[in-house]
Amino acid sequence: MTEMIVVKELSRSFGEIRAVRGIGFTVARGEIFGFLGPNGAGKTTTISMLSGLLRPDSGSITIDGMDMASHGRDIRRIMGIIPQEIALYEELSGRDNLLFWGGLYGLAGGELRDSVDRALELVELIDRAKDPVRTYSGGMKRRINLCAGLVHDPKIILLDEPTLGIDPQARIRILDVVKGLADRGKTIIYTTHYLEEAEHICDRIAIIDEGTIYASGTLAELVELVGGKIMVTVSGGFGAGDVRELVGDAEIDHIENGELRVKLLDRDSTGRFLGGLFSTGLHVDGVAIREPSLESVFLQVTGRELRD
């Protein structure tokens, strides 16, 4: 598979804050590559460096065979960027916004108008194209925001949390558009802090936190990292020694007074473990069971939950 994006040892600091710490990854042509991480993980900084807006302190970015350091403008011409913010002129109509953004990418005349029409049809906003953006709903603004990054038919699309703060229905529409773009051979980098989005649309996912990629791969590969096991977390008024015997052969992920986290092979062994726990009469405040998922992977590799 052709590598469209190759990133090596990329770092960027803002004063004392090391926002991105030597990350590296590759993205193949036509692939949706997800960055999953909480706010402040370094996703937007990475996108800013990939788009040429920020210069890395060190490392290299190669896109479609061109080095970002020397071919920034050429790279930006084949790239469509959908930022986290609704970055549109609210007083202009949807169409006028797209005419402006398309123009910035060098489109003009009939080619520009045709591209705008195609983009509006793609996000199903052709009927509202003449209305000022300020009159749009939140979901419609998100869609036209997406559209503005697509009007010049880019090879590579960077989406930075494109579904932030919208209702589930509007989110599904945007995700459908993104999947459709990948089907048409576009290379996509998609950042999100929504686990289900990453699971739903990404071919491969990088788990990023504190500027570091902790793990990356397909969903199956990442789940394999936690051994494909069920993770049970028990909290209560017990000592570590009280529960150690109950665990038996199960793999202890974490144990200390008042908290125990174990990995269990399947639901039967989980049932047996919990039955044994309650039969001891130990004081238990809460039990959390996590099936093997991206969430448990995130917890496993970063040591904290995504919503922390």
Binding site: I81, Q84, L104
Partner: peptide
């Protein structure tokens, strides 16, 4: 609003 940043991400330097 992030508009200038978006313009900066376009081919316009």
């Amino acid at each position: 609003s992030g508009l200038l940043k978006r313009i900066g991400m376009s081919p316009a330097g």
